[in-house]
Amino acid sequence: MVGNDIIDIAETRRSTNWERPGFIQKIFTPKEQGFINTSADPFTTVWQLWSMKESAYKVFIQTGPDRFFNPSRIECKVDSLQSGRVRIDETSIKTNTRINSNYIFTTAVLDSSDIKTRVFQITESNSKFQSIYMHRQVIRAFAKSNSLNSAELKIQKTTTGVPSLFYKNKPFNSSLSITHHGNYGAYSILDKWVIL
């Protein structure tokens, strides 16, 4: 299973004030707060941890629980600049984070599965259409890199919001995750898949 999350840095600076009183306390465990407090760049650390939580949640939700909103139920541990581990209840999830001046992007996997991932720049500015736009981009890119007919590819979401890919109305035995925020979007898919 795979989950991902992208954070557009400029969009986050514009839309979210992480320094608002109570914000950090609501979403981070005491251990995570300690990690943020000692960070040389708390802004980046806050959003790095947030993207780890979001991507791990997207893996966890595929294991069958109901949706929930409780960020401090999800605890992150950063092992190195890139890699980390996230614990949700009894489940441990591995994460990999890429940070540059434009975005913070994390992928999460349940085991050591190989994944293929691709980041896009989004040109659709109306947030209402961004998710449709992303689905189109994913289908186009996936069809191209796997020599499939894009007209036969479809993405459907489950009731918990997990996207899955279909080819000629047949499901894939794989796991797919799609994320978008501000001007950036990405998809990640388990590298080994077959059409069922």
């Binding site: 986050t12 839309s15 979210t16 608002r20 109570g22 914000f23 609501k26 979403i27 947030w50 979001e54 909103f69 960020p71 925020h181």
Partner: peptide, 11 residues
């Protein structure tokens, strides 16, 4: 609503 802003809603 993006999930970070859901924290704002709660606050």
């Amino acid at each position: 609503i993006n999930s970070a802003n859901l924290v704002d809603v709660i606050l």
